[in-house]
Design a protein around this nucleic acid. Structure first.
Length: 803
DNA sequence: ACTTTCCAATTA
DNA sequence: AATTGGAAAGTG
């Protein structure tokens, strides 16, 4: 007897273990490790992942597997082990880890149905009305009806009704219609002769097939012969042609032509950097490389040529890029070099499109995947290299369960496949650079730009002085003039607004009342388009008030510097400027992002104004001026990484100017231009910044000198939350070593979200071998309250977001 | 005596 | 997470 050990699709700690099921004979040759199966669980039927197939069990009675959902495993052996590792190191449930590795559509969908077993006459009036002649009704119909649960229960007891559970995948396959001859050429010819002379279009279609007897895409056929289905239909009805429905991939890039590029000759510096990577591929040895290259130094070419080597060896490559940088320009470079060997995975794809790209990987129809964070789980089995571009990006850390960092997963996979992991950045995280200095990672440096051009000159503008000089606008005098100058010359400008910390809130000018969310401790954000106030943390929204709810004055206004507002005042300042604004609002619609960028590239606008999303990966030849409107917006947030983030952002934004023949220039506006992160970013001095920031981190006991764990407790009752957090802090102080520092409990920076109070403890440690065990114990102690008292505990190892 | 609501245990 | 069966609370 064969037995499958299964992780069930029930996300709680009590079911977070293997359950044994008998594999019925007719499924014995089908069921395998890594497949999804339908299993009975209590009275229900649910989905589960087969983790192991064995011959023995400790139990004497087992239930049978009901059905298999896959014929090929969706999880490879490596991914199963990886999922286990993730759940153990990030303290999440097994099922959560496995679900995170797969595309959305492979999540099971459950349906509960009520079946009529007897004749309708045997039912009472209420039930008969409910069924109304149908044999099956969905459970939602029952809930919508007035029939009481009691009646249904009785019906079930009397054997008149039955509840059935259905488990379905959500995957859908897209099909398209092809037309093919249904008879041989002889018959076609006969039919052609028989057709009346008047049926010109029909004759045209047949003559097409006489010349090309293969099947052809219907839309294309109709297009080529410039005809319609009206002429095609009679031929199909006569049985001469037939419709063939074929499965096709939803390929978002299919109608695009990519210019093929060939490998460039590497510069001496690039050649030096790529050599150790190629060696690592050659010798099948795992190493983690930190490729530190200034913007424009040609990191991507190093990636591309390393990947070429991997493909030549018959292996596969995984490339991670930050979501925000997954622009058409980036995709183009990979598609241009490797053509149809590339799958692309990012959040702008529909679920169906993601699934199709994923299946190309699963079926090994591609050798390269370029994608955002979750692409690290690409189900390749022969990985030859893993590349993480813009290594410092915070989007590589997932902020909800499983709270994994793609970099850690990459290294784990690199070890398994004995292949190199390359972390690339112009501004590496302090953690990574420190590791490179300690030779844990191998440091590779690219210090020169490929075009031998100097980095654009950065001019800092002290906005305090502007204010003193009577300029109250958000554009300094210099910036205003330079913009005018560029427009006159027909060159382009990129304006960058750091939105974080500058959201548009609504305040009463008379009494100072600020509109806040009734469920969270945060000011509401004003949305101009809908004229409504929205909360960024819960889904709460309300209409913009006309009078202040506190003092009933009518001088209630919105404040803050959103991109909309900048666009407005820019329009007043320079009415002739053509502006493209890029932010969440203008890029919400599918393809909008790309359309706006194309417009700008075609020089249909003079100024590109945007947030974070224009800081990365963009490359426009005609841009000669970059303006940063508020460089210190990030700097004053309660986050120990704020200096690092500011430095990274400024460096990145500066890199947008003067990438080609025309020299570039950068204006950085700030209220604290003397801050070392602004000062050193404007000098492009990463090494000096690293040293200075390391001093700060050492002094304040932050990473990379210490590891962090953030423990957040939340509950609707504030006192209770504080109490539990205090207990936990005490527990940690009792169990962790004396060298570790435990801070808190303190209220979270956002103390209340969705009517739940949040308190936190921070652990700083250098060496805690049994940390995982202790944290697990912490969960166990409060398991009951989590289960029955609406208590929530989140544990985040190496957190990025301290809110 | 009977119905409704709540809670904890169980899921192979 | 969903279900269920039994205890506790409510109802006339």
């Amino acid at each position: 007897m064969k037995i499958a050990r299964v992780i069930v699709d029930v996300p709680t700690s009590q079911t977070n273990r293997l359950f044994d099921y008998r594999i019925p004979e007719h499924l014995e040759s089908v069921v395998g490790r890594g497949m999804r199966v339908v299993i009975p669980f209590g009275p229900r039927k649910i989905m589960g992942f087969v983790i192991e197939v064995t011959g023995e069990t400790k139990l004497d009675k087992l239930k049978d597997i009901v059905d298999v959902m896959d014929f090929t495993p969706v999880l490879t052996n490596e991914l199963i082990d990886l999922g286990k590792w993730i759940s153990e190191t990030t303290l999440c449930l097994y099922i959560t880890a496995f679900q995170a590795m797969l595309p959305q559509v492979l999540k099971a969908k459950y349906k509960k149905e009520l079946w009529l077993l007897a004749e309708e006459e045997e039912l009472n009036d209420d039930l008969a009305k409910l069924f109304a002649g149908r044999a099956v009704i969905s459970y939602e119909d029952l809930q919508d009806s007035t029939v009481s649960y009691r009646q249904v229960q009785k019906g079930i007891q009397d054997g008149l009704l039955e509840v059935q559970y259905k488990v379905k995948g959500r995957e859908t396959k897209k099909t398209e219609t092809f037309i093919a001859p249904a008879v041989d050429v002889m018959k076609l010819e006969e039919a052609y002769e028989d057709l009346s002379k008047g049926a010109k279009k029909q004759r045209l279609i047949l003559s097409y097939f006489l010349e090309n007897p293969e099947e052809v895409h219907r839309r294309k056929l109709l297009e080529v012969l410039s005809t319609t289905t009206a002429s095609l239909k009679p031929l199909i009805e006569k049985g001469l042609l037939e419709e063939v429905h074929k499965e096709v991939y939803r390929d978002p890039y299919q109608d695009r032509e990519y210019e093929r590029t060939t490998p460039f000759d590497l510069t001496e510096e690039q050649a030096g950097a790529i050599e150790p990577i190629l060696q690592s591929i050659e010798h099948k040895e795992h190493h983690t490389f930190l490729l530190h290259g200034v913007t424009g130094s040609g990191k991507t070419e190093v990636y591309l040529q390393s990947i070429q080597k991997v493909i030549d060896q018959g292996k596969e490559a995984i490339v991670l890029v930050p979501e925000i940088a997954l622009t058409p320009q980036m995709v183009e470079r990979f598609k241009g070099r490797f053509g149809s060997k590339v799958a692309v995975l990012h959040s702008a794809l529909s679920y169906g499109e993601k699934y199709d790209e994923w299946r190309k990987i699963q079926r090994k129809e591609v050798q390269v995947v370029v994608g955002a964070r979750s692409a690290i789980f690409a189900p390749f089995e022969n990985v030859g290299i893993i590349i993480i571009d813009e290594e410092h990006e915070s989007s590589y850390k997932q902020e909800d369960y499983p709270r994994y960092h793609a970099r850690d997963v990459a290294i784990k996979r690199g070890e398994h496949h004995h292949c190199p992991v390359v972390l690339g950045s112009a501004t590496p995280t302090l953690e990574s650079f420190a590791r490179a200095k300690k030779d844990v990672y191998k440091l590779l440096s690219l210090k020169k730009r490929m075009n031998e051009q100097a980095m654009p000159e950065v001019e800092k503008v002290d906005m305090r002085e502007e204010l003193r000089a009577g300029n109250r606008s958000m554009f300094s005098h210099v910036l205003h003039e330079k913009i005018l100058d560029r427009i006159q010359k027909g060159e382009q400008v990129v304006l960058f607004l750091n939105r974080r910390g500058y959201s548009t809130f609504v305040m009463c000018r008379d009494c100072g009342h600020v509109m806040e969310c009734p469920h969270c401790d945060i000011a509401l954000t004003y949305h101009r388009r809908s004229e409504r106030l929205k909360c960024h943390y819960c889904s709460y929204e309300e209409a913009m008030p006309t009078i202040c709810p506190s003092c009933e004055s009518d001088s209630i206004r919105y404040f803050g510097t959103g991109t909309q507002k900048v666009e407005e005042s820019l329009g007043q300042l320079i009415p002739e400027a053509r502006i493209i604004r890029m932010d969440v609002d203008t890029t919400r619609r599918k393809g909008a992002h790309e359309r706006l960028l194309t417009q700008f590239a075609n020089q249909e606008a003079d100024i590109l104004l945007g947030t974070q999303m224009i800081a990365k990966g963009l490359d426009f030849a005609n841009v000669t001026l970059v303006g940063v409107l508020a460089a210190d917006a990030l700097l004053h947030l309660p986050d120990f990484r704020s200096s690092e983030k500011t430095f990274q952002l400024l460096t990145q934004v500066s890199g947008r100017a003067g990438r080609h023949k025309l020299p570039g220039e950068v204006i950085v506006q700030s209220y604290t231009p003397e801050h070392y992160s602004i000062e050193l970013a404007s000098q492009y001095d990463y090494d000096a910044f690293f040293l200075k920031e390391m001093q700060m981190r050492k002094m304040f006991q932050y990473p990379p000198y210490y590891f962090l764990v953030l423990l957040t407790v939340s509950h609707p009752n504030q006192m209770y939350t504080m109490d539990i957090t205090k207990q936990m802090g005490q527990f940690l102080r009792n169990h962790l070593s004396d060298n570790s520092i435990i801070l808190g409990p303190t209220p979270s920076p956002l103390t209340r979200i969705k009517d739940r109070y949040r308190y936190q403890c921070m652990i700083k440690y250098r060496d805690e071998p049994s940390l995982l065990k202790i944290m697990n114990r912490l969960f166990q102690i409060h398991e009951d309250a989590i289960q029955n008292n609406d208590l929530q505990i989140t544990i985040d190892f190496q957190p990025y977001q301290l809110m």
